[in-house]
Write a protein that binds this DNA or RNA. Structure first.
Length: 865
RNA sequence: GCCCGGAUGGCGAAACUGGCAGACGCAGCGGACUUAAAAUCCGCAGACCCGCAAGGGUUGUGGGAGUUCAAGUCUCCCUCCGGGCACCA
């Protein structure tokens, strides 16, 4: 009996997250105002803290835990600093996995998705994340996706959404089209074992290229974004300045037949020794029409390209080409050059045709070597003689040794180039483009790698595209033509009972009640568009919806969006650098041009956290190294799990998950709990300040010094470096010092107010990292209200200052001893102390002091000989 | 091939502007408490060598050179690992 009574009372002293965490979770759940954002008139500075919304797979993984632990710490810190914080969460809940699950389990996608959301919301609450659930956004619900449709209509009317037939990426696994951004190394971004096929389909596109220049130049100003992400976006946009030049086809029956080439080096045009066409090029096709041999060779090239693309490595195929036997006229010098078709010319970049200048381009050089095409040098470094020779066959030795291809354009000039000979390259590029324009055979131009965003998906679980095809046609619309629905017809609801099968074609096409409708203009029969939108549409603007999530009349109220935007801190994985993060920048500009918002960019600052790794590899089911957050929470509690995710590595680096480390954090939290609860009522327990004596005051001063240094360090880190791992280490140091001072507290030799300040502040410092424990301790300390609304402690520089400082003394760069001196001692004092130190003196005895370096506050180095 | 990161004890890491390398934690070892164990608390700890010990010496931040009184940190060259881009004319 006695034993159990004792163990019960000890039990109460023990840190038991399984008890305190659910208790606080229930209290927080019952208090929706706790994490609610306030209005624009609350008088506080706003802070929009956002983590990327997850796909509701049904299971939180460690990457989520890390992402949300970072965001949550920041949100709580900002609240404590007196900001009005918006910290929302939502669900990127359209997409293929729901259809796959439907196939597998015979569960409707909606049901499966909503159940997953419920499960993940429960996990997030269990983690104690400070989301304002009143602003929750679920993209698969009509309340949300109707605004996708609304935007789509706006874009259609603005000419930003259009249909065209083109070659598109098709994933046979997903049974749908993919955007360029969703093709990774020739594979589907979701199925890295599935080669993407090319199909000709008529699809809806969004005109992101209209904003290409702005998306590019905007990056220069985005210094709150990682340089890495900005670079990736720059490369993806791939702006390139050059010129279009028309080469007439010589002796063409069709007099107007010409080949327009794109080049960034029009200054090299006198060195062009052939014109190269992509196998898909229209002129190549027209030549092939009368030349079966050529036609066969072109077909072979196309087949080979397809194979290579499916193998995932386009650059692996060897360059080869075929001479068409035709010639083109170089408009600058009237020369005839042969026209070839070559497999390395991309049909969808530039014009699908180039002028080949072997002397000044790596690829052209390689190609010319292979086929013995002439190499003519027309660019030389400044100062070199400007007469050159036609080399005839390319050479790798002799006269051209190591000099070709010569690709530099800076500090280089033209040679053998008619009236432009001797001019610097860069200057000549402009003048020659202007010349072409004046003479009607070319112009300066800019091309982009970025293509318009193909958004049609032949899938069920997505936003229906709000368009119909009027069967009979009417004024201005031919039969079968596209008619946009009026806004009043929105939302176009996704039909609930749809059989999901693996056959091709849009599943919606098999739902007669959905497909068959009336034309909104003429009332005649019409069929609905049966493709749905890419799910990246959903995530392109969801963060605006958070500012006004319940609005039934508009996607959001502009005043609210303008108050909260831009996002002050966006946190997520780098894998979205050129998908979500470029689409949402585009969407923001579209909304701005529609007059809905004032900002150009969605997020002022972006943080990309590192991956969570186990046994040296990214966690994945196939590797069998997945660690379940649920299991960690069950064993060690949410506080310990989250805090470990912040402690194990700086947030931008990869993190190796070690369960023993979580146990260590749990132990640490237990220590905090034990100490704090023991001293939670100092006034009633002991303490009279008058007992303090000088030496004990020193111990107290030391404790307070560490306390204030810790405050300063953490406060500083939140505003800059975000090295939460060292913040937590600093708290551990503080706690170690408190534990060391415990005997003095026991004896009442540390004052009551000091003890109270130490534990009160410790609790506040822990609040962003271990919210459950902080809430519990705050209550036990008698704190009023939610700990997350208590003002963040302010470091007192006076209390934080070190009275004495240890200065290492080196002799010839090697440590001889450490001397202790009052802080702020001047150079002379330090040097004197250093040189008179016994150990130091012993080392410099019998030597000559050459030089003494004194760095006040840092060290002394005595150079002897 | 090009562009970013990164490499520090047995492990995760720290050292922010050049100034005591390894803070903090994990694992380990020793001790206290306990009949015992768990939990907890205290202590030790880069490696090598000398010493019974206190202590002392050498060496050490992927490799090599350099700048400097002083280099994990700066410069040059190289190796390996991770990520991105890759026939873009």
């Amino acid at each position: 009996m006695e034993e159990s009574a004792q163990s019960t009372s000890e039990e109460q002293q023990r840190y038991n997250p399984a008890e305190i965490e659910p208790k606080w979770q229930a209290r927080w759940d019952a208090d929706p105002a706790l994490y609610a954002a306030e209005g624009h008139d609350c008088g506080k500075p706003k802070f929009y803290c956002l983590e990327m919304l997850p796909y509701p797979s049904g299971q939180l993984h460690m990457g989520h835990v890390r992402n949300y632990a970072i965001g949550d710490a920041l949100a709580r810190f900002m609240w404590m600093r007196g900001s009005n914080v918006l910290h929302p969460m939502g669900w990127d809940s359209f997409g293929l996995p729901a259809e796959n699950a439907a196939l597998k389990n015979n569960t409707p996608p909606a049901e499966w998705t909503l159940a997953n959301i419920a499960a993940m919301r429960r996990q997030m609450r269990r983690m104690g994340l400070s989301y304002d659930w009143a602003t929750e956004v679920t993209t698969c619900l009509p309340e949300y996706y109707r605004w996708n449709q609304w935007f789509f209509l706006k874009m259609f009317n603005a000419g930003l959404a259009y249909r065209k037939k083109s070659k598109v990426n098709w994933c046979p696994q997903c049974q749908t089209v993919l955007a360029n951004e969703q093709v990774v190394d020739g594979r589907c971004w979701r199925h890295d074992d599935t080669p993407v096929e090319q199909r000709d389909l008529t699809q809806w596109f969004l005109r992101i290229t209209k904003y290409a220049d702005e998306l590019l130049s905007g990056l220069d100003k985005m210094d709150g974004w990682p340089e890495k992400v900005r670079t990736m976006q720059r490369n993806w946009i791939g702006r390139s300045e050059g010129a279009l030049v028309d080469f007439a086809v010589a002796a063409s029956q069709q007099a107007a037949e010409k080949i327009t080439v794109f080049t960034t080096r029009v200054d090299t045009i006198f060195g062009a020794t052939s014109v190269q066409l992509a196998p898909e090029h229209a002129v190549a096709k027209s030549f092939a029409a009368g030349n079966p041999r050529l036609a066969a060779q072109i077909d072979e090239m196309l087949a080979q390209q397809k194979d290579a693309r499916e193998a995932g490595d386009l650059s692996a195929i060897e360059k080869h080409g075929v001479d068409t036997g035709k010639f083109a006229v170089n408009p600058f010098n009237g020369e005839l050059v042969p026209i070839w078709v070559a497999n390395y010319i991309l049909a969808d970049y530039g014009t699908g045709a180039i002028m080949s200048v072997p002397a000044h381009d790596e690829r052209d050089f390689e190609f010319a070597n292979k086929y013995g095409l002439p190499v003519r040098r027309v660019i030389v470094p400044n100062g070199q003689k400007q007469n050159t020779e036609i080399l005839g066959f390319a050479q790798n030795d002799g006269a051209s040794e190591g000099t070709l291809p010569y690709t530099a354009e800076d500090d280089s000039s033209l040679a053998d180039s008619g009236q432009w000979t001797g001019q610097p390259c860069v200057e000549a590029q402009q003048k020659m483009a202007a010349f072409a324009r004046e003479n009607g055979f070319g112009t300066a131009t800019v091309t982009y790698r970025l293509k318009d965003w193909g958004v049609s998906r032949q899938r069920y679980w997505g936003t229906p595209i709000p368009m119909v095809y009027c069967a009979n046609g009417h004024a201005g619309i031919e039969p079968g033509g596209v008619v946009p629905l009026p806004e009043s017809a929105l939302p176009v609801l996704l039909p609930a009972q749809v059989e999901i099968t693996q056959q091709g074609g849009s599943p919606l096409g098999r739902v007669a009640e959905f497909v068959n409708t009336a034309c909104p203009v003429c009332g005649g029969p019409a069929r609905r568009e049966t493709d749905t939108m890419d799910t990246f549409v959903d995530s392109s603007w969801y963060f605006y919806r958070y500012t006004d999530a319940k609005n039934a009349a508009a996607p959001f109220d502009s005043a609210k969006a303008n108050y909260w935007f831009p996002i002050d801190q966006y946190i997520g994985g780098v894998e979205h650098a050129i998908l979500h993060l470029i689409y949402s920048r585009f969407w923001t500009r579209v909304m701005r041009d529609l007059g809905l918002i004032n900002n150009d960019e969605p997020a002022a600052r972006l943080f990309t956290q590192g991956m969570v790794i186990k046994d040296g590899a990214k966690m994945s089911k196939s590797k069998g190294n997945v660690v379940s957050p649920d299991l960690m929470i069950e064993r060690y509690g949410a506080d310990a799990t989250r805090m470990y995710a912040l402690f194990a590595a700086p947030p931008d680096r990869d993190l190796e998950w070690q369960e023993d480390g979580v146990a260590g954090i749990s132990r640490f939290l237990g220590r905090v709990y034990r100490l704090t609860t023991k001293y939670s009522e100092p006034a009633s327990r002991r303490v009279s300040e008058t007992t303090a004596q000088a030496t004990q005051c020193a111990a107290e001063a030391k404790l307070l010094r560490t306390l204030h240094q810790t405050i300063a360090k953490i406060t500083d880190d939140f505003s800059g470096r975000w090295h939460f791992n060292t913040c937590i280490a600093a708290i551990m140091i503080l706690v170690n010092e408190i534990a060391a001072a415990e005997p003095l507290m026991e004896e009442g030799k540390i004052s009551g107010p000091a003890i109270a300040e130490v534990f009160r502040t410790l609790t506040l410092l822990l609040a962003p990292f271990a919210p459950f424990l902080a809430a519990e301790l705050w209550e036990q300390l008698g704190g009023q209200g939610a700990v997350f609304r208590v003002a963040w402690p302010v470091a007192d520089a006076e209390l934080a200052r070190e009275a004495e400082i240890e200065i290492p003394v080196q002799v010839n760069g090697k440590l001889a001893n450490v001397v202790t001196l009052p802080a702020g001692s001047d150079e002379a004092t330090i040097q004197a102390a250093a040189q008179t130190d016994a150990k130091v003196a012993a080392r410099i005895a019998a030597k000559t002091v050459v030089k003494v370096i004194v760095v006040p506050g840092k060290l002394v180095n005595i150079v002897v000989r």
